[in-house]
Simulated assay, not measured.
Amino acid sequence: MQADQFLFPTDAGLYCPAGDFFIDPVRPVPRALITHGHGDHARAGHKAVMATARTLDIMAIRYGADFTAQRQIADGPVRVGGVTVSFHPAGHVLGSAQIRLACDGGPVIVVSGDYCRTPNPVCQPWEPVACDVFVTEATFGLPVFRHPPPAAETARLLSSMAEFPGRKHLVGAYALGKAQRVIALLRQAGYDAPIHLHGAMQRLTDYHVAQGIPLGDLRPATTPKEIEGQVVIAPPSAFASPWVQRFRDPVIAFASGWMAVRARARQRGVELPLVISDHVDWPQLTQTLQDLRPEEVWVTHGAEDAVIRWCDLNQLRARPLRLVGYEEEEE
Score class of each variant (00 low, 15 high):
Glu295Leu: 08
Pro235Ile: 03
Glu296Ser: 12
Gln267Cys: 11
Thr286Gln: 01
Glu226Gln: 15
Leu289His: 07
Pro242Trp: 05
Val270Asp: 00
Pro235Ala: 03
Ser237Pro: 05
Ile252Ala: 07
Ala253Met: 08
Ala265Ser: 15
Val261Met: 15
Val232Asp: 09
Ser277Gly: 08
Ile233Trp: 00
Arg262Ala: 13
Val251Met: 13
Pro242Asn: 03
Glu296Val: 10
Ile276Asp: 05
Gln284Lys: 09
Pro273His: 05
Gly229Gln: 09
Ala260Glu: 12
Gly216Tyr: 03
Thr222Lys: 11
Arg266Gly: 03
Gly269Gln: 03
Arg268Cys: 07
Pro236Phe: 08
Met259Lys: 08
Gln287Cys: 01
Thr288Pro: 02
Pro235Asn: 05
Pro214His: 03
Phe239Val: 08
Pro235Lys: 01
Leu218His: 07
Gly269Tyr: 04
Asp217Arg: 11
Leu215Met: 09
Pro273Glu: 02
Glu271Phe: 03
Val280Gly: 02
Pro250Ala: 05
Ala265Pro: 02
Pro214Ile: 02
Lys225Cys: 01
Phe254Gln: 13
Val297Tyr: 00
Gln230Ala: 12
Thr288Ala: 13
Glu228Gly: 11
Arg262Tyr: 09
Leu215Asn: 07
Ala221Tyr: 07
Arg268Phe: 13
Lys225Ser: 14
Ala263Trp: 06
Pro220Ala: 14
Arg246Cys: 06
Leu215Arg: 05
Phe247Lys: 02
Leu274Thr: 01
Asp249Gln: 14
Glu295Pro: 01
His279Phe: 11
Trp258Ala: 14
Ser237Val: 14
Ala238Val: 00
Val251Asn: 09
Gln287Pro: 00
Glu271Gln: 14
Pro220Ile: 00
Val261Tyr: 07
Val251Asp: 09
Asp278Tyr: 08
Trp282Ser: 00
Ile252Thr: 13
Asp278Val: 13
Asp249Ser: 12
Ile227Ala: 04
Ala255Cys: 10
Leu289Tyr: 06
Asp278Asn: 15
Trp258His: 13
Pro236Trp: 05
Glu271Trp: 06
Ser237Trp: 07
Arg246Ser: 11
Glu295Asn: 14
Arg219Tyr: 08
Thr223Ser: 15
Trp258Asp: 11
Pro214Val: 08
Ala253Cys: 14
Glu296Cys: 10
Gly229Phe: 07
Ala240Lys: 15
Val270Arg: 01
Trp282Lys: 03
Pro283Met: 05
Pro235Met: 01
Ala234Met: 10
Ser237Asp: 15
Phe254Met: 13
Leu285Asp: 07
Leu292Met: 10
Arg262Trp: 03
Ala253Leu: 07
Ser256Val: 06
Ser256Pro: 05
Ile213Lys: 06
Ala240Trp: 10
Leu292Cys: 11
Gln290Asp: 09
Arg268His: 13
Arg219Ile: 10
Leu215Gln: 10
Thr223Cys: 12
Val244Glu: 00
Gln287Val: 02
Gly229Ile: 04
Ala265Asp: 04
Arg266Val: 14
Ala265Lys: 00
Arg264Val: 12
Gln290Asn: 09
Pro273Met: 01
Asp217Thr: 11
Ala238Leu: 08
